[in-house]
Write a protein that binds this DNA or RNA. Structure first.
Length: 112
DNA sequence: TAGATGGCCCGTT
DNA sequence: AAACGGGCCATCT
């Protein structure tokens, strides 16, 4: 029988998938979990992202909730930074929501 | 060992 | 549109 992959490698998988997201695009937590080969690890992914080292160059801000809202509250420092970074990349928010139909990244059509 | 807790998700009310 | 409940994976009490 096969032992489950070590946590560390799953974390790496999340990082790789995260690093692959182009600027100006976003993904949901669940989607990121899928991309990393974790299936339904959405919640765990959220936990991992909340624990990234501060100096990390990874685009954590491109991961938002499935309904298009950044999960971090607007009044938190990280919440403001997230919205600021998204805006800087050209991702517009309406009523604090991102239009997923437009900005959601689909790896299959990443031919751009 | 059981319950509660997380930057969640989805179908149903 | 918003609230609720069950499910998901891992960690912490």
């Amino acid at each position: 029988m096969r032992a489950p992959p070590p946590l560390e490698s799953r974390r790496q998988a999340v990082f790789l998938a995260l690093a692959a997201i182009p600027a100006g695009r976003v993904v949901s937590y669940g989607q990121l979990a899928e991309l990393a080969g974790l299936g339904r690890g959405a919640r765990w992914v959220g936990w991992v992202l909340g624990r990234l080292p501060e100096g990390s160059a990874l685009p954590w801000h491109r991961v938002i909730a499935a309904d298009g809202r950044p999960s971090l509250t607007q009044d938190s420092p990280s919440g403001r930074e997230q919205r600021e970074r998204l805006r800087a990349e050209g991702v517009l928010l309406h009523e604090d929501r991102v239009d997923m139909r437009r900005y959601r990244w689909n790896p299959a059509e990443s031919v751009e």
